[in-house]
Design a protein around this nucleic acid. Sequence first.
DNA 1: TGCCAGGCCGGGT
DNA 2: ACCCGGCATGGC
Length: 217
Amino acid sequence: MIEEKLKNIYARLFDSFGPQHWWPGDTPFEVAVGAVLTQNTNWGNVEKAIANLKNANALCPVAMDRMSEPRLAKLIRPSGYYNVKTARLKALISFLIRDYQGNIQRMKKGKPQELRKKLLGINGIGQETADSILLYAVGVPYFVVDAYTKRMFSRHGILSADSEYEDFQELFHSNLARDAGLYNEYHALIVKTGKTFCRPRDPLCGDCPLSEKGLPI
DNA sequence: TGCCAGGCCGGGT
DNA sequence: ACCCGGCATGGC
């Protein structure tokens, strides 16, 4: 039973690592900024960029909207792809100001499905970034699928490695309660486990809580 | 030193 | 529908 497998994996990860207290960010806006900055990027580098924004007293929608692109690019430089990400942050913030007066909380009004479509319409916001914002900044239950999720659950034979984002997301949506708190913790535990054990060609399965009898993670 | 990190876009086939 | 190159820093 697939449902039992998913619940069993969750239980084992939670027992091993405990609550992860995600997303690592003080405000919904910081979460949204972090979601863009962490695209294909080590979280440690993102922290440096966010620290720069805080030091410049610039981690708010109005300040970042007004800021020149070269200045913003310089502040977020440690997170890599800084020119691309400057444009993406600008696009997200323009949208946020235009439709929600710069207040992410207001996204809770209206249908989550419509909001997701709107987010995906912003240049630079793909499925994972949109779902990260939805789940961790807005608090609506969309499961976030990242590289770790695909790697872990395909290596465990639950889905084939070349399955689509939607396939992985549907796996969780249809087999677990549609619960933001659960999705929050589950995804955070997947990342925690992935960072520790689940490199692309380096399983390191020995001490992983999921490794037993030829079940590499 | 090369590999890796909590993707996404645009152009080509 | 797929495939691919580009985007860039910092840690190990």
